[in-house]
Amino acid sequence: MTKVTLTVNGRTMSGECEDRTLLVHFIREKLGLTGTHVGCDTTQCGACVIHMDGHSVKSCSILAVQASGSTITTIEGLAGQGELHPVQAAFKEHHGLQCGFCTPGMVMTAVDLINREGGHLTEETVRAGLEGNICRCTGYHNIVKAILAADAEIAGSRQAAE
């Protein structure tokens, strides 16, 4: 057993685990944050996407011990208690989710995409940016719409702040 310490959603958290424990299982089972999901075994579906040190990563393909010392944001920590991040709000407004299982990974991916390329996203760049996330319910139509709307909203409020 190895001790893993992470800063998760702003709080320092520690736990013991086997070295073979995947980060996603550590987050779900040791930290009790079950919003991050596992949908495949081959690093493809993206249901497990979180942010590690500011970048989107697939927590199903990283060992918890590899991540030790890093700063992590999960879907639970994206917005304040009871609030929605603009991307979450846009997913609700545009019906960008159905069963909800891929949703946390989709939202974390969208936030990362807007962080990197925000302000001038197009349907094409959004679809390309979702290459690592699979949704079986929505046909992506409303996810794309939601991300474009969130991008415009975030860019707008940035401009307003300047």
Binding site: T43, G46, S56, K58, I62, D112, G129, E131, G132
Partner: peptide, 9 residues
Amino acid sequence: IGDPHVRHM
């Protein structure tokens, strides 16, 4: 290569 998340790692 891969996808955005894979490219981060």
